[in-house]
């Protein structure tokens, strides 16, 4: 290949200026192209959008549920939202003939591990507060159509502290919807985890609400780093 007449030797002032100008032009062109979306970039940053749900084995879930004949694990799936959120749904058996799946949903919010991650975060996948009376009514109407819902006056406590719940009943069945936000990242959560949100929906035959809540009361989080339990912290 014939040599070109352009010299890049450091001794040549003219050539250096030419090289610098070329480099500058290249950088400018690249910057223009990149910022104008003409270099194969998509318009929006899709890395912050939730991925589609994918199936996982129950063993890959960050939770262990007590064995239950009425509420066995039927399926499990997960998805990511950005690098910050991992969401899981555990579908449980539903012994009733009522519509809707029994399930435990878990959202784990981790802290970003880079400056860029901290600057570009996806919108939070769960609201805080988890429910207002309006959103709770809308949710229970959707979850338990045609049933009368009662909001429990007092919270209950599981391994990770207090949680709130509603109950519904008809002639043959009862249902519960419980929700909990674990956000004590000073004492309870490991350093890298900002919050864990749990939501549990179960319908069963009969009127024993405690039995319905037993899986939620007895669940144990199995995240890579230990989440301390309420009893570890003494009186919370």
């Amino acid at each position: 290949m014939p040599e070109t007449s352009i010299s890049c030797t450091p001794h040549s002032g003219m050539a250096r200026t030419g090289w610098q100008r070329t480099a500058l032009s290249a950088v400018l062109a690249a910057a223009t192209l990149l910022t104008s979306g003409c270099a194969g970039w998509v318009r929006d940053n899709l890395t912050q959008a939730p991925t589609p749900w994918r199936r996982v084995q129950p063993t890959a879930l960050p939770v262990t549920l007590p064995d239950s004949r009425d509420f066995p694990i039927v399926a499990a799936r997960m998805r990511d939202t950005g690098a910050v959120y991992k969401s899981y749904i555990v579908v449980l058996g539903n012994p009733t003939v009522l519509p809707g799946e029994n399930r435990l949903s878990i959202d784990v919010q981790t802290l970003p591990d880079s400056l860029f991650g901290a600057l570009v975060q996806p919108p939070r996948v769960f609201p805080v507060p988890l429910y207002t009376m309006e959103t709770l009514l809308a949710t229970t109407k959707r979850e338990f159509p045609g049933m009368t819902v009662k909001v429990a006056d007092a919270a209950r406590r599981n391994r990770y502290g207090d949680y709130d719940y509603v109950t519904t009943q008809d002639a043959e069945n009862s249902c519960v919807l419980a929700w909990q936000l674990i956000s004590d990242h000073k004492r309870m959560l490991p350093e890298r985890i900002e919050a864990v949100r749990l939501e549990y929906r179960a319908c069963g035959i009969g009127s024993n609400v405690r039995a319905l809540l037993a899986p939620f009361d007895g669940l144990s989080l199995t995240l890579p780093e230990t989440v301390l339990e309420a009893q570890d912290l003494g009186a919370m």
Binding site: V74, A75, V91, G93, N94, V97, L98, P99, E101
Partner: peptide, 10 residues
């Protein structure tokens, strides 16, 4: 029809 697809699949 009862919106319980995971059990339906099973």
């Amino acid at each position: 029809e009862m919106k319980r697809p995971s059990e339906a699949e099973a």
